[in-house]
Simulated assay, not measured.
Amino acid sequence: MEQLNLYPVAIKVQGRRCLVVGGGNVAERKVAGLQECGAEVVLVSPELTPELERLVASGRVIHLNREFEEGDLEGVHLAICATDNKALNREIARLCENRRIPVNVVDNPELSTFFVPSVIRRGPLCIGITTGGNSPLLARRLREELEEHIGPEFGELTLFLGKLRQIIQERFSDPEKRRKIWEKVLPPGFFAHFQKEKMNSWRKQVEECISSPWE
């Protein structure tokens, strides 16, 4: 496979229609990932896993109980092919390309226009790891390794920094002052010493930092 330099992006799918073709275990994982991000999931397959059947029964997934049809792509924000039918996957990829719909064909990087990374989520903090389709297992192993070092406290930290960003933007109009404040709030080597039990004392230091004169 030709080596690709991928352009990493994070796509908003909240409230948007996303298509998953297939009803097996892989499709189940793809549906779960899309739902976690608030997507409106349309699932096309005559057969489903018990978990997918449960989601359909709960009304959380729109299920088309049949084989894929071209009209299923109408109004779709992105598509994921998770079937073991190579000819069908290729046809869906072609149709998506014609309609300029991003498509991921599971286990076929050449047909895919985007890849779903192995993800670590800590609240609003999202870290994605991809190998460009070369080795999904490597991406998973790296994720497992990083999860040992990036705990739930990083989600709390991210939320706090989001609120702090608003305060700093409102209080300081000079971009250079903002930069200096952020460098003091998050100095080099910060994460090596950051621990949940030290969060309160760190917040106090941050409050003192933004309250001090910056003329």
Rank of each mutant, 00 (worst) to 15 (best):
M1L: 11
L6M: 06
L6K: 04
A10Q: 01
A10N: 11
Q14F: 10
Q14W: 05
G15Y: 05
G15S: 03
R17N: 14
V26Y: 04
A27R: 01
E28Y: 01
R29D: 06
K30T: 04
V31K: 06
A39V: 02
V42P: 01
V42H: 09
L43D: 00
S45T: 08
P46G: 08
P46I: 06
P46C: 06
L48Q: 07
T49S: 15
L52I: 12
L55C: 00
S58R: 15
S58Y: 02
S58Q: 10
G59W: 11
H63L: 07
L64Y: 15
L64D: 00
E70N: 08
G75A: 10
L78K: 04
A79D: 04
A79C: 12
T83D: 10
T83K: 10
D84P: 12
N85R: 12
L88I: 10
R90G: 15
R90T: 15
R90I: 01
I92S: 05
I92F: 04
A93M: 09
R99I: 02
I101G: 14
P102D: 12
V103W: 05
N104Q: 11
P109Q: 10
P109I: 03
E110M: 03
E110C: 02
E110W: 04
F115T: 12
V119G: 07
V119P: 01
I120L: 14
R122S: 04
P124M: 08
L125R: 11
L125G: 12
T131H: 09
G132Q: 12
G133L: 13
G133E: 09
P136G: 00
P136F: 05
P136H: 06
L137F: 08
L138P: 03
A139C: 13
L146F: 11
L146K: 08
E147R: 07
H149R: 12
I150P: 00
G151A: 05
E153K: 01
F154D: 07
G155C: 09
T158I: 10
L159P: 00
L161W: 08
G162D: 03
Q166F: 06
I167F: 01
E170C: 04
R171C: 00
F172H: 09
K177I: 15
R179I: 00
E183Q: 15
E183T: 04
E183C: 06
K184R: 14
P187W: 10
G189V: 03
G189K: 08
G189A: 09
H193W: 06
Q195T: 13
K198P: 02
K198C: 05
W202P: 02
K204T: 05
Q205R: 15
V206D: 07
E207R: 14
E207D: 14
I210N: 08
S211N: 15
S211C: 13
S211E: 15
S212G: 13
